[in-house]
């Protein structure tokens, strides 16, 4: 039996900002019903990749195919099949959640009755039913993120691009949303999940791609990555692949910088005294 064909195919993607190379020759594919965890340190190129996949940025070179549709050649058709949650959680704050979801629904040409029904259901699910007619200017980060998530899911997309989707969400919502992601994948949705929270990536994702300095340095299931790096946890795998060394030294130096060296010196002199005793 042949494996499922890839729903999202990215090949030899490259993007530069002036002289700075943001991503360099990135290729990967994600199958239908699969969740790909997209990891990397700050500035590695995660958000740039997702912005290119969402059609916000044009790549310098490379190809993107979404469900057989070439994103560069037929962007509108491709965009109809995707939902995007940006890292910044941008939305028109002067609108109410209902107004915002109505606008998004209309842009996707969803029927008015369906927009209304889904908006109410989603806001109910995210505990925002009472605030549905309140302007989002007064919303907390988490509340806004819930509206952004609702907007991304409103048109029942086949591909979900999630850039730090759990930003600001409370523990209960995180728990629920993890379940929802898993369930959506089981229903055949393709998900790219970019995050810094390694624990969530480890639990939710089927495969993981680690990007460092604009290039994918490792890709595979958590088991494959463990075998590859001989590391027991994703934290250590990440540390190994992104060459994050000397963490303990950095911690010590930072603590010294915060306390102007006083407490650190006091602590060390106290330790010396204890040793002497």
């Amino acid at each position: 039996m042949s494996p499922d064909p890839a729903f999202l195919e990215v090949s030899q993607l490259r993007k530069t900002f002036g002289s700075q190379i943001a991503i360099n020759d990135i290729s990967f594919s994600v199958r239908q019903g699969e969740i790909l965890g997209y990891l990397g340190p700050n500035g590695a190129g995660k958000s740039t990749t997702l912005k290119i996949l969402a059609g916000l940025l044009t790549p310098d070179s490379g190809n993107i195919s979404i469900g057989g549709i070439n994103l560069q050649q037929d962007p509108l058709k491709a965009k109809k099949r995707m939902g995007f949650v940006p890292e910044t959680g941008a939305l028109y704050e002067k609108l109410t959640p209902l107004e915002y979801l109505e606008m998004v629904g209309q842009l996707y040409r969803i029927q008015a009755s369906e927009i209304r029904r889904k908006s109410h259901e989603f806001l109910e699910y995210f505990d925002l039913a009472e605030q549905r007619n309140t302007r989002m200017t007064s919303f907390s980060k988490g509340m806004k993120q819930k509206v952004v998530l609702s907007a991304a899911l409103l048109h029942n997309p086949d591909l979900l691009l999630l850039d730090e989707p759990l930003n600001g969400l409370d523990a209960n919502t995180v728990l629920m949303f993890k379940g929802v992601m898993r369930r959506l994948a089981d229903l055949g949705k393709t998900i790219i999940y970019s995050s810094h929270i390694l624990e969530v990536v480890e639990r939710v994702c089927d495969r993981i791609a680690i990007i460092h300095q604009g290039q994918i340095v490792a890709e595979g299931s958590i088991t494959q990555l463990r075998e590859m790096t001989q590391s027991p946890s994703l934290e250590l795998i990440f540390k190994e692949l992104t060459k994050t060394g000397g963490v303990e030294d950095k911690i010590e130096a930072f603590a010294k910088a915060i306390t102007n060296g006083r407490e650190a010196n006091a602590a060390s002199s106290q330790t010396e005294e204890e040793h002497e005793l």
């Binding site: 704050e93 609108l95 107004e99 606008m103 842009l107 040409r109 200017t137």
Partner: peptide
Amino acid sequence: IFQLRVLVKIAVRASFRGYEPDSSKS
């Protein structure tokens, strides 16, 4: 045209609104 109407409606509405959180007040 349909999307155009939606965007104009939203832009006019949002542009005239302040940052006051209370709906009735705003």
